[in-house]
Design a protein around this nucleic acid. Structure first.
Lengths: 339, 339
DNA sequence: ACCTGAAATGTTAGCGCTAACATGAAAATG
DNA sequence: CATTTTCATGTTAGCGCTAACATTTCAGGT
């Protein structure tokens, strides 16, 4: 009356099998692998040899189920094609992997709806923590995390509302680069924005603040397009801008892609940069230092945001309450020849 | 004599709890969620309502453990900063997500060693299948997969050795674009290569084949650098190349980044493109069609490689033996003004 | 010799879920 | 109306692992 044996996943070698081969119980194998100090040296050596010989592969699902810790972190980023987030991802990975944590990457495509959906879907993995881009999730988002008791770190921007965040003030950065253009004697400074996510809008706020303070704000000089930014778009926007406002003498582009497109358009139109037109970008991506003329932009600590956020999250997972703080990593205005 | 209750992960609501709330057993809840046709409509509605009300989140680890299927696919790609692989990733995701599969992304950094390490690490998740970039893994790689009975699909290139692959012939593509340059009357065609992964080397093979057939091969015209490619590198290589070989009248760059760098260098050096110097790239990334002059390049079906590979893998996981075939998705030479 | 306590290993139970088999009721069949 | 089939649901056991407690061993102190 024996039942069919159930399916086995993987190679079918379990801790129990390894234990049998060495003459110990499964728990000792578990300890040899994950808390080596609790097993005598001789035994541990024999066990590790057997693990190798039998080709034992631990089963993470079983481990997660039994220990109630998945050793997994969910990372939500708006895009995989934007270098900014890829750099951050690299920083995150460099901290999480050595710590034995697994990254689950969710691409929100800049959509709050998709972000919420992804959170729900990935919660099934019982992540031990979540790294989120930006601060403008719906209230439901934080509630869900709260209910499951999952710590989160918010990346890229700052807030004083008590959430744990790592980044820099997008608004201050926008203000700083605009002020830089003012200091260079520019009087009709335009803003070129695409994607229009929360970070772009905050940079726009900073731009407005700087210009208003100088008494030079003109809403007509704002060119906003919700579509994802491309170099082409930057070129088009610049052409449009100069047609409508021939007196415009500078433009702050919300990112380097737009700025490089704008630069190319100036060259095509025969406008000298920076003499006739100053151009500033944002992020200091690799090409910014390389185009002619080199692009004035704002260098952002993307990689470090990743490492710091990951570190904070790990501390938070470990229960260190003081990990829940706001980390301002700052930014640097990079004055180059385009302004 | 009661023990401490064990930790609970997540919200603590289980299928059993949902069942209690509705007055059914846990297995009925399971069926209502995953094989709805096996539960009556009335009951299913009640169960789903309770799931919502209680905020039940399924536990994927438990599911994977009990069913021996993780609904997870491992994707190994060489880089997250190369648009080529990001596009492929997008294709993969667009097929896997609707099918309920979870992607685990492993970044190999173009290293066979890291690739093997990643495979071993991610095997702990008991992936149901693996998507791999390229064909030149060590024999150990395929053996490991074989032993665990995990199907794999190899992306980007073709092979006749029986492995399931989706891509196009990198060699044929290299040959085709080189022939295009020959047909445009070029006689001293250089090759500029970076990163030097297997795909670049195959394109180089194709380049050599075309030039040898035309009796115009000269090993001195090959500029190879194992470092990751950048626009800067393309510019440097072009300058170097022209210094050493002033008679060089065309260059096939192994990717668009190098080509755009080379283009910029020509402009800086005052060399007319294509009159004095023809330039061809590879991949047809967005900027290729947009720089001046527009770049001749080879369009590659990156997104479709992703969707097809994912589809094949799913079929393979489902046990459809005929899924193990080679899919040639072809490529298209895009003649533009740079040649 | 006895006790104490730390170190090394084992036993038991259960994490949340689903495969396999079992049961009971309703519907279809002769 | 008895019999078979189908459908809807339940029971049992176990996936592989580890928390919690239990036991054994042995060093060191008295």
């Amino acid at each position: 009356m024996s039942r069919k044996p159930r399916l086995r996943s993987g190679s079918g070698v379990t801790m129990h099998d390894v234990g049998l081969a060495v003459g110990v119980s499964a728990i000792t194998v578990s300890r040899a692998l994950y808390s080596p100090e609790r097993v005598s040296d001789t035994l541990r050596t024999k066990i590790l040899e057997a693990v190798d010989r039998l080709g034992y592969v631990p089963n993470r699902s079983a481990r997660a189920l039994a220990s109630a810790r998945s050793q997994t972190v969910l990372v939500l980023i708006p895009s995989l094609t934007n270098t900014v987030f890829i750099d951050t991802l690299a920083g995150i990975e460099d901290v999480l992997r050595p710590a034995g944590y697994q990254m689950l990457i969710g691409n929100t495509h800049y959509s709050a709806g998709e972000e919420m959906q992804l959170l729900r879907a990935y919660l099934e993995h019982q992540p031990d923590g979540v790294l989120v881009t930006g601060l403008s999730q719906p209230p439901e988002f934080a509630q869900t995390l709260e209910r499951q008791g999952i710590p989160a770190v918010y990346m890229m921007d700052l807030t004083a509302d008590g959430r744990c965040c790592v980044g820099f003030s997008q608004e201050d950065a926008g203000e700083a680069i605009t002020r830089h253009l003012l200091e260079r004697g520019r009087r009709r400074i335009a803003f070129m924005g695409a994607q229009l996510d929360e970070r772009v809008l905050k940079r726009l706020d900073g731009y407005r603040k700087a210009l208003r303070a100088a008494g030079r704000y003109d809403a007509a000089l704002e060119d906003l397009d919700p579509a994802p930014s491309t170099m082409q778009m930057g070129a088009d926007a610049l052409t449009r801008l100069l047609q409508a406002h021939p007196d415009c003498d500078a433009v702050f582009c919300c990112n380097d892609d737009l700025a490089i497109g704008a630069l190319a358009a100036c060259q095509r139109l025969g406008l000298a940069v920076p003499q006739r037109m100053a151009i500033a970008g944002f992020n200091d991506l690799q090409p910014a230092g390389w185009v002619t003329p080199p692009l004035t932009t704002v260098a952002t600590p993307r990689y470090r945001i990743g490492t710091e956020a990951a570190r904070l999250l790990l501390a938070s997972i470990a229960g260190e309450a003081d990990a829940v703080t706001c980390h301002d990593l700052g930014f640097t205005v990079m004055p180059r020849a385009s302004s």
